[in-house]
Amino acid sequence: MNRYLFICAGTVLLGVGGVVADGVLKSAQVCAAEEQVSFKGDIQPLLKWRCSGCHEGTGEGVQKSGLDLSNYAGLMKGTKFGRMVIPGDPESSNLMMLLDWRVAPAIRMPHGKKQLSSCDRDAIRTWIRQGAKDN
């Protein structure tokens, strides 16, 4: 699995992002450009590792929701209740709501298991923000 790194630069100087207020230079935080996240290299292996037990083939998650995470088409098709991914908008995507546990405990994912790490959730969030491409 390819891994990427969120790199946040510390202080940015005046002329590059600093701000002068009341004669005092205030620093600003800036994040370096993020690396492109790949569905095939980053997201699909993560989904296979953490979600395929229920959301593949005849798994319980497929039977209950209709969500098949075995491939890109299944993820983008969504569930019988609606879309899971809104390309470009991770915070409104149902997938992120479920994975971030911003929903009722009974439907948090992965159901009955430990929450995905913040790093894994950030990878999915970044992929969605970058357009949720089949790359």
Rank of each mutant, 00 (worst) to 15 (best):
R83W: 00
G23M: 13
C51P: 15
L5C: 09
Y72S: 06
V30H: 04
G112D: 00
R83A: 07
K80F: 12
D134W: 05
E35Y: 12
L14G: 05
Q36I: 05
G78E: 10
G78P: 07
P45S: 01
I128Q: 01
D68L: 03
I124K: 03
K77D: 06
S92T: 04
G78N: 09
D89K: 15
E91N: 15
Y72R: 06
K26M: 04
A132Q: 02
Y72H: 07
S118I: 15
T79G: 04
V16F: 03
G41W: 07
L95S: 07
L25W: 10
A9Y: 11
Q36G: 00
G61R: 02
Q29R: 15
G57N: 08
P90Y: 08
S93G: 09
P110M: 12
L98P: 00
E35D: 14
P87M: 04
T126I: 08
S27E: 11
L99M: 10
V37W: 05
C8L: 14
A132P: 04
I43F: 00
L14M: 09
R50H: 11
V19N: 15
L13F: 06
K26W: 04
L46F: 08
P90K: 11
S92A: 06
G78M: 06
V20R: 04
G78I: 09
C31Y: 10
D68H: 09
A28H: 01
I128M: 03
G74H: 09
Q63I: 13
I124R: 02
Q130G: 00
P87Y: 06
S70M: 12
P90F: 10
D134L: 07
G59W: 02
C31G: 11
A106R: 12
L5T: 15
L14S: 08
I107M: 09
G57L: 12
D68C: 02
P45R: 03
V85I: 13
K114F: 07
L116S: 02
K26A: 05
V37C: 12
K114R: 12
N2C: 06
D122V: 07
S65L: 10
S118V: 15
L98E: 02
C8E: 15
S65E: 01
W101V: 00
K114G: 06
S38M: 12
A21F: 11
G18S: 10
L25T: 13
G66S: 01
P45K: 01
P105I: 10
Q36V: 04
W127S: 01
R121N: 02
S117K: 02
L5M: 11
G131S: 11
K133E: 13
G17Q: 03
D100G: 07
G41I: 04
R125W: 09
D120E: 11
Q130E: 02
G41V: 08
G18D: 13
W49P: 00
R129P: 00
I128G: 05
F81M: 14
M1W: 07
L75C: 13
C51D: 11
V12T: 01
A9E: 10
W101M: 03
W49Q: 13
G61V: 04
E34Q: 09
N135K: 14
A123Y: 05
A32T: 01
Q115G: 01
A21T: 12
L25I: 15
R108F: 02
I128H: 04
G10F: 10
S93P: 08
C31R: 15
L99I: 14
W49Y: 13
L13E: 11
